[in-house]
Amino acid sequence: MPTKSYVQTNINGESVEFLAEPRQSLLEVLRDTLQLTGAKEGCNDGNCGACTVKMDGRIVCSCLVFGVEAEGADIETIEGMASPEGLHPLQTAFLENAALQCGICTPGFLMASKALLDHNPNPTEGQIRWWLANNLCRCTGYDKIVRAVMDAAQKMQA
């Protein structure tokens, strides 16, 4: 008979255990099993980026990862972005630049933008647009998102 698998992983710096059916995506596990609902399901086929999390140093669409693949991995989610000291500069920049309207895509954009700035602290507008092309936003037309990322980059370098 089908049985669930035991998985030990690390999420936002904490060791986490869970049971998952192999067919369950990492996104389902995060949301339904672990109640980490910051990652969103927008398309479930890797085209909208709303479910973006960082896994072993790379951002991925968590809808295209099986939960069982998290075994031994290091995962970062939006829930781990702010610290007890306060919001991450990107989070603050998104608020100050009104870079969100409905907010459903925002966790994915923030995760992707943070990975961008980790990799390239001073990106051009073109580099930001290229990097964020896997994240769809339907509200903003991207203008204020791109400006928020540039604003955060500038403030983080200062």
Binding site: Q35, T37, A39, T77, G103
Partner: peptide, 23 residues
């Protein structure tokens, strides 16, 4: 003026509860 929106912090931290987040 351009104040920070009241629901902003929840929406940049993943805390905001959308329909599918309801349990």
């Amino acid at each position: 003026t351009r104040p920070i929106r009241p629901d902003g912090a929840d929406k940049v931290t993943g805390r905001a509860k959308y329909s599918a987040d309801f349990t």
